[in-house]
Simulated assay, not measured.
Amino acid sequence: MRRRTPEELGIAAVVVIVALVLSAISPTFRTLENAQILLLNGAVIAFLALGQTFVLLTGGIDLSTGSNVALTGMIAALTMSVGAPWWLAALAAIAVGILVGTVNGSLVHFLKLPPFIVTFATFGVAASIPLILTGASSVSVKDPFFAIIGRGSIFGIPMPVLLVAVAAIVFTIVLRLTPTGVHIYAVGGNQETSRLAGIPIGRTIVLVYAISGMCAAFGGLIVTSRLMVGYPSAGSGNELFYSIAAAVVGGVSLFGGIGSIPGALLGAVLIATVSNGMNVVGVQSYWQPLVIGVIILGGIIIDTYRRRVPLGELLSRLVKRRQAAPADQA
């Protein structure tokens, strides 16, 4: 009996190759200090990619993640500014993130609106609320314990990395070992068949968007905790771009029903590595979206042809063509 090669093995190999190339190019890249920066910056991308994975698996997309980072981070900062303890502020931020996701999922399912339009509208709303609440001003965080989320560590491992690891383990268990995971894949594979099979489609769709909102909230908490300042414009950079890139490159299909948490996590590591490597090497910032865009395009092309032709069959065709080439030349 042939053992199936894990699909994540390919992206893992790419991560290793990219890291080795960047290490050879720049001695700074292979330093411990830079590795910590890479992991810390990658933690936010990873959280957003994990949430995006759940949404993509159902055939949807969440464009509100970046602004949700700003909203939830600002909610945490404002909650502490009125005297609330840091843990209550963190819970408030997570609750708001889940609320945003729940609204997205409800509009998508119950009003039958396109996910792209719904989440794009939510992106604008969530981006404006922090600006309205603060008059576009930043809010300083005074509670020193809040820094544990973004600056703390356990046994030398940064807290954001530990949080991502715990979330990845929990999400993997949910997708692989629970009926909820089966429902998510089924809805993404064929929604009409899922409905006939009695799967609660509405509850499943609302759930995945709520999870995406929760992951964005953790991203907001990490960003605010690292800076100890709530910025109304946080998350307005490439976070959304990177989260989609990480998930797609990690093997999560834009068409739904295909993908895994480990793959998305490896995709996030790859995107963070490429971004960090370009900064270390000295590539100017306006080149980075181009490179990430090419990576996304490559992931989409592979995903499209993977759905038309199984990857194993495609590889066997390539091998046969290579073997046939010398014979033709002879």
Rank of each mutant, 00 (worst) to 15 (best):
A77V: 07
A77I: 06
A77H: 03
L78N: 04
L78Q: 05
L78T: 04
L78V: 05
S81L: 10
S81C: 10
P85Y: 09
P85R: 09
W87P: 02
W87S: 06
L88F: 11
A90Y: 04
A90F: 08
L91P: 02
A93I: 06
A93V: 09
I94F: 10
I94Q: 04
I94A: 13
A95L: 13
G97N: 07
G97C: 07
I98D: 05
L99K: 14
L99H: 13
V100K: 11
V100D: 12
G101Q: 10
T102V: 15
G105A: 03
G105S: 04
S106Q: 07
V108G: 02
V108Y: 01
V108E: 01
V108K: 00
H109Y: 14
H109I: 06
H109L: 10
L111K: 07
L111S: 05
K112H: 13
P114I: 08
P115M: 10
F116T: 10
F116V: 15
V118C: 01
T119N: 01
T119E: 00
T119I: 03
F120E: 03
F120H: 06
T122R: 04
T122K: 02
F123K: 13
G124T: 03
G124V: 01
A127W: 08
S128M: 02
S128P: 00
S128Y: 01
I129S: 01
I129H: 00
I129M: 01
I129N: 00
I129D: 00
P130L: 03
